[in-house]
């Protein structure tokens, strides 16, 4: 049972195409498992589309009436220029008789330790770095090239956990398989957990789990001996 969902503002930014690939992918993964959010996304897309295409007042069809109908400060030269440009676009586009074939990507699978997982379809065309193992944690970085935003598959072996840590930025976890707990409770497959930098938590996975994680800063371990792990905080997220 999914209990944690992306908040509305995030879904809205997703529909608008304003989120980085890492976060857009996270929402796609969640929505594929969450009919509730899927429905919201469909509705939002419909609304945004309607707004996008109904606001236009001057189209090329009434360009001739521009003088009388426009009380906006639009340069007629610009529009005439784009008129010619548009005509050439139309003939270029329709010159080709090609029809696009849609090829559905084949799902990828990954193996951590001895467990194999089929990955969400949205990850099919993304490259992964090599797996780094730290105790019961394994992670593989997605090659998204988004500067300070790091995206990983994080696998926690049964009985493993991430030592107490905070972030300066955000930390997003989407549970792909299995479950983990922290002081807030239990998280299950499909849960979308967004934490901001003020949060300290210590996730532990009794039976193991696979997560898709996005963070824009290295982890900062906060307790005792685990402070030793700070140099490797950036491996995990």
């Amino acid at each position: 049972m999914i209990k944690h969902h992306p908040k509305f503002e995030l879904l809205e930014a997703f529909v608008n195409g304003d989120l980085p690939a890492s976060l857009s992918i996270a929402i796609t993964i969640h929505a594929d498992m969450c009919p509730l959010c899927q429905q919201k996304i469909l509705q939002l897309t419909e609304q945004v589309a309607e707004q996008s295409f109904e606001e236009d007042v001057i189209s090329l069809d009434n360009l001739d009436n521009l003088d009388s109908s426009s009380h906006f400060d639009i340069s007629i030269d610009d529009d005439l220029e784009s008129d010619a440009l548009f005509d050439s676009m139309i003939s270029n586009i329709t010159f080709s008789e090609d029809v696009a074939e849609v090829v559905k990507p084949t799902d990828k699978s990954v193996t951590f330790k001895d467990k194999t997982y089929v990955l969400p379809t949205v990850l099919s065309n993304i490259g992964f770095g090599k797996t780094a193992n730290v105790g019961k944690l394994s992670r593989s970085r997605l090659q998204l090239n988004e500067d300070e935003i790091h995206t990983n598959l994080l696998h926690i072996n049964a009985g493993g956990g991430v030592p107490a840590h905070t972030h300066k930025g955000f930390e997003l976890t989407v549970l792909l398989d299995g479950s983990f707990t922290d002081h807030e409770g239990e998280y299950n497959k499909g849960d979308f957990i967004m934490l901001d930098g003020t949060f300290t938590h210590t996730p532990v996975s009794e039976n193991g789990c696979l997560c898709y994680t996005v963070a824009n800063d290295a982890l900062h371990f906060t307790q005792g001996i685990n402070k030793l792990l700070n140099p490797i905080g950036s491996f995990i997220y």
Binding site: T106, S109, G127, K130, T131, A132, S140
Partner: peptide, 19 residues
């Protein structure tokens, strides 16, 4: 959604040996 999903060659980038 595509009706005919074509097989694509699958390449596993994940390796455990680097560490």
């Amino acid at each position: 959604e595509s009706a005919a999903a074509e097989e694509q060659p699958y390449e596993d980038h994940l390796e455990n040996k680097q560490l």
